[in-house]
Each structure stands twice: as C-alpha cells, then as structure tokens.
Design a protein around this nucleic acid. Sequence first.
DNA 1: ACCAAAATGCACTAGTGTTGCAGCGATAAT
DNA 2: ATTATCGCTGCAACACTAGTGCATTTTGGT
Lengths: 138, 138
Amino acid sequence: MSEIEQQLAEFNIRPTAMRMLVYQFIEQQQKAVSLSVIEDYFDKADRTTLYRTIKTFEEKAVVHQIDDGTGVAKYALCEPGCGCDIGLDLHLHFHCTHCNDTTCLTDHKIPKIKVPAGYIAENINLVVKGICDLCNRT
Amino acid sequence: MSEIEQQLAEFNIRPTAMRMLVYQFIEQQQKAVSLSVIEDYFDKADRTTLYRTIKTFEEKAVVHQIDDGTGVAKYALCEPGCGCDIGLDLHLHFHCTHCNDTTCLTDHKIPKIKVPAGYIAENINLVVKGICDLCNRT
DNA sequence: ACCAAAATGCACTAGTGTTGCAGCGATAAT
DNA sequence: ATTATCGCTGCAACACTAGTGCATTTTGGT
C-alpha cells in the first residue's frame, strides 16, 4: 500500500489510480492549481473525472477551494490547522498579479474582523494581491 | 442639467440616457448588483451595452467590482475615501450566504496585514461570509 | 446641417462549471 | 466462482458569464 493510498484512505476516499495521480500532482505544486491546469497535465483523462475528483477532495477536506479574484477556482491541499475540516478557511492567500500564481500563507492568520451589529460572520476570505517573492527578485 | 448628469460629468463620462438610468439603478440599490440583475431590470437594453456601461463606470472609478466568491462579479458605487480612484479597494464586503446579497461595509476598514519577506502587497480583497442583518431578524 | 467620434445593438466565440447517462471495473454477497 | 451491486469513468450536452468584431445609430462640436 503506497503512501498516497494511505493518505486517501485516511480521508475515506477510495484510492483509485486517477485520484492518486491527481493528489500527487496537487501535492507537488507549490501553488494553488486550477482545474484547467490539471486538465492540461492529465490530457488523457476526462474533464468530468478530474472535476469530480476535485469535488470529492473538497468534500472530504483534502483540498480547499481558493477564490483569488481571477474568476477561476483554484485548489490547494489542506494542512493541519487549516480549518477546512470544520468549514472554515482562516488562513490568507496571496495572489501575484505578475505571474498569476496563488499561494497559501498558512502561517499568516487572518486578524479578527468586526462586523456591524446584527451580522453573523461565519467565514472569511482574504486575498492579498501584489508581487510575489519570485517575481520580485527577477 | 439633472443631478445624475452632473455626477457623471464629474467623472468625465458622457451622460447618455442609458448610463444615467444604469447609474440611477445602482445608486438605488442597497447592495452590490451583478450584471445579470441589471440585464433583468433593463430588459429592453442590450447585454453588451450594459456590460460596456459597467466597464466604463469601473474605469472611471464610479463603481468598483466585488468578487464575493459566488463566481459572478458584482458592482457597487464608490464612495469618498473608497480608494478605488487610486486603484485600491480597502473596505471590506459582507456576503450573506442566506439571501446571497453582498454589501459594502464602508466604515469597517481592513486591518493591516503582514506578508512574508519579499512579497509586496498592493491590494487586499476581504469578504466576510455569514448571515446579514435582515436575514438574521427573520 | 454636417462630420467625426463615441455609444449602441447584434452576432458570435471562448471558458468554466455542472449534470445525465451509459459502460466499465472493483467489491461484496451467495 | 458467479452474480449483483455500487462507485468510478468517459462522453455528450447544457447553462452561464465574459468578452470581441462589426455595422448602425446617436451624440457633440464646428
């Protein structure tokens, strides 16, 4: 039983070949990936399969969806303390307007936000836009 | 010269009938509106015209685009100190997951966010999701 | 009134997200 | 081992949003 197989099993996901490959691919990336990127990489596989694979991962809190304002959903692996398993996604994301990459800043937590009386805050999405480390140096 | 005509003139926008109507409509809303909502309201007008009207408003910093995570762009009037005129959009937005409405919380500013060394933060998008005042009371 | 420029309307394209359905393979029950 | 079942996969199709090119109309300036 491979390592990836074990990890998927922990999330109660049946470890099919496709799922293991997709998991491995997302794991290798240092950034959040969109569905189209995954499609391009696995050009043999069907769009729908990849779509549903991601949906499954999302439901089981393997990955979380990131909306960086570009209009396309991106996904990144959840990490311990990520909060995704309890429906929260309280770390912030950085979107580089130069290379268009989006990364999780897991160790930078979102500060406490006050909302007006009568409002109930359940979740927070915070995306910082700017120039990333890599683009800044070149 | 009507009041709306004057306001558009201040932004260097030629006050056509269509634009004045759209401006008036957005102004009347207490929430951010999507393009489809505007289309439904002005069912006589062409989609493209409304689309380009909004684009013009956005370029001239009359309205700002809001990405609340629903996948469709919404728009709301800019206000003094909104920051849109200098490319910043530093107030936060509230998206009600119950009624799907998104509102500007203009008087609630975004706290200072720290980013890792090497990163340059240029703009911040902060959307709080939850239950709004109105939905909470009913 | 006339002309140039801008605004409008129509047609069309592209991309993303989503669903229904049929086939196939793995798994479980007999 | 055979069969029944369930879930995964692939194909096709649809809905919606965003965007573009071009012809036509409207607008503002002279």
